[in-house]
Design a protein around this nucleic acid. Structure first.
Lengths: 162, 162
DNA sequence: TATTGTTATACTCTATAACTATA
DNA sequence: TATAGTTATAGAGTATAACAATA
């Protein structure tokens, strides 16, 4: 429980958070401007597109998104209001809600995706070599898996400040 | 203007955003739980601590933070209300507001920093070798510099979706 | 009893625009 | 005219807790 990070770790942490913050800012702006979508809404639609026809439950959608259930319900409500998704009771489990993406939803994704990709490429990948990209992917995949493997969100309370 | 990222780029983009998202979630939770601070508030205090006595203007603080002026004013107002910073007119430029961190502000940072560092180490650095850390730092520093070098926020309008 | 999902509600964050004051 | 900062206001996101329905 040392009280500081090594200088190299500090530098890395700051570079990582700052770069990602800049990227996120631009990505959010693009999604909003070109598709009227929040980032979460885009994530939901992208997951549904990725599901390739299989319909997903609210729980499936929540999985991997670090939001509360009610937050997801809210966002799904907005997407449904705009006709981008539809919801219905699951045939298998009457408690579950099954979500499908609509034609309009797919069209919306198709609308914003090119711009989204442009932003990511221009901001992030234009400054990285293929080798950098692979290395970055390896390192961050490892980090992500490590974080995912942690005890959920109900881990032991963090150390007391003192 | 190709319409897709290479598979390797996709993988890297997803790993990066997912890992950082998980990290941010935990960091925010920790700062709120142990110090009642939003992430932005913590950033402001950290910048002031880092300034080592030199006082910063609101513009200095806004620099590097991708928020609106009014947002910064709001957050600074909260910090001042809680006695963590103080504001006064600049002696040099009457238009400017000079911000200083108070004793209580420093104490608050000292309170939350250990827990903050713990979270970052446990979630991020525990899964990375020293070599990974250096590489990640190099790559993300380059990316950050590239993003910072971009035309501000008033760049040409993004490509039209089509 | 546990799980799925929604609702009601309240709070926080952020942005836009109008405004004051100084350079 | 341009810059520094604040205020007022409104909108969007998120969370908590209570709730209904099903497993």
């Amino acid at each position: 429980m040392a009280d500081a990070l090594k200088p190299e770790q500090m530098r890395t942490y700051f570079a990582l958070t700052e770069a990602v913050s800049l990227l996120q800012y631009e990505v959010r702006k693009q999604l909003q401007a070109e598709g009227g979508l929040s980032y979460v809404q885009f994530e939901i639609l992208a997951k549904l597109v990725d599901a390739e026809g299989r319909s997903l439950t609210m729980t499936d959608l929540a999985d991997g998104v670090v939001y509360s259930r009610s937050g997801l319900t809210h966002q799904a409500g907005l997407l449904e209001r705009d006709g981008l998704i539809s919801r219905r009771a699951s045939p298998d489990d009457q408690r579950a809600t099954v979500v499908d993406i609509t034609k309009a939803g797919r069209a919306r994704v198709a609308d914003v995706l090119p711009g989204h990709v442009d932003v990511v490429r221009e901001l992030l990948f234009d400054s990285l070599s293929d080798r950098d990209v692979r290395t970055l992917g390896d390192v961050m995949s490892r980090a992500r898996d490590h974080m995912r493997a942690r005890p959920p969100r109900s881990a032991a309370p963090r150390r007391r400040a003192r």
